[in-house]
């Protein structure tokens, strides 16, 4: 009975156990870590990375990659920011228009990534690397390399809204994780994403237009970046052509820590969410301990590697238990 429970825990909770261990550890040794206030902060801090990582998970499940998310995020904020600060646009139009434009900008970039790499069979690494530069360049050009600010007051205030300590932007992020998880597990689309990630040729020969699904994954990733851009603007009230540098690495790290295979076909969004959580908790907890910048960087890197290594043992150990 007890063995079975541990087996269940090891198999189903997965890398979440490591997150739980980190949280318990920090709660014991770091004052304030478990305070409502600090938890709210962590929620806010992981939201943007979580949303980008949701999109990234779709792409990585197909065995692809999207290096352009940081630049595209910046471009989306510029497009949305310019529209929102336009003179003479009524408030509701300005805000909803900005959201739609941000989504569209992200999806267009995603469509480009997916379509080019699928049509000419170029590895997404190269195409999205190109897009990383294109999007950054367009953002700088369009904005004249200036930071855009002074958004409508109503918009800025929404950014700090919380419900019983849970920030609005975190609710958005969790909702997207849940929707994504539903799509992956319960829909034909999700089934085919996994199947293509495992064996594209077998899926094609079973009568599916695999190209369409692969391009769709990049468009979804772009849409997520568009949403993340709005969350960024809500949180920091600026739009800038230089933000988002290195965001792709954080997102990829969250996905991979969450157990998604870089080769595709295996993984889940819950895992990705936990991966983003691990990174956020580490960043917060280690700072609260009072470690210096460089030591913090070393420890964060070390813990990430150890977490993933431990995870490989988890599966083995759980099978041993059952025998």
């Amino acid at each position: 009975m007890r063995k079975k429970f541990i087996y269940f825990l090891l198999n189903e909770a997965g890398i979440g156990l490591i997150l739980a261990a980190l949280c318990i550890g920090f709660s014991i040794f770091v004052p304030n870590f478990a305070s409502l206030h600090n938890v709210t902060n962590i929620f806010t801090q992981i939201s943007i990375n979580t949303v980008i990582a949701v999109g990234m998970t779709f792409v990585i499940l197909l065995g692809g990659i999207d290096l352009s998310v940081g630049s595209v995020l910046s471009l989306c904020t510029i497009v949305a920011g310019l529209f929102m600060t336009k003179e003479g646009v009524p408030l509701p139009v300005a805000i909803s228009g900005a959201i739609v434009l941000s989504l569209l900008a992200g999806m267009v970039c995603g469509l480009f990534n997916g379509w080019v790499s699928e049509t000419w069979k170029i590895h997404a690494f190269v195409v999205t690397l190109g897009m990383l530069n294109i999007a950054r360049g367009v953002a700088l050009q369009v904005s004249g390399s200036r930071t855009i600010f002074s958004f409508p007051k109503a918009f800025n205030e929404v950014g700090t809204l919380t419900f019983g300590g849970v920030p609005l932007i975190f609710i958005v992020a969790v909702t997207l994780v849940l929707i994504g998880q539903f799509v992956l597990n319960k829909t034909v689309f999700g089934r085919l994403i996994y199947a293509i990630g495992n064996n594209e040729e077998a899926v094609r020969l079973s009568g599916h237009n695999t190209k369409r699904y692969k391009v769709s994954a990049y468009v979804i990733c772009g849409a997520m970046v568009g949403i993340a851009a709005i969350l960024y603007m809500l949180r920091l009230n600026i739009a800038s052509p230089i933000l988002g540098v290195g965001f792709e690495l954080s997102a990829i790290a969250a996905v991979v820590i969450g157990g998604t295979s870089m080769a595709g076909g295996k993984g889940s969004l819950i895992g990705t969410f936990i991966g983003a959580g691990i990174m956020g908790v580490l960043n917060n907890g280690l700072l609260l301990i009072g470690l210096s910048d460089f030591i913090r960087q070393i420890v964060t890197g070390g813990i990430i590697v150890v977490a993933v290594v431990l995870d490989t043992y988890r599966v083995k150990f759980s099978h041993m238990l059952l025998k």
């Binding site: 806010t44 801090q45 943007i48 949180r235 920091l236 933000l243 540098v245 917060n284 009072g290």
Partner: peptide, 16 residues
């Protein structure tokens, strides 16, 4: 030099 990172950092420092 980054806005988002400074925001996260400051939020955490305020807790401490």
């Amino acid at each position: 030099w980054e806005t988002e990172e400074a925001n996260t950092l400051m939020t955490n420092l305020l807790t401490k």
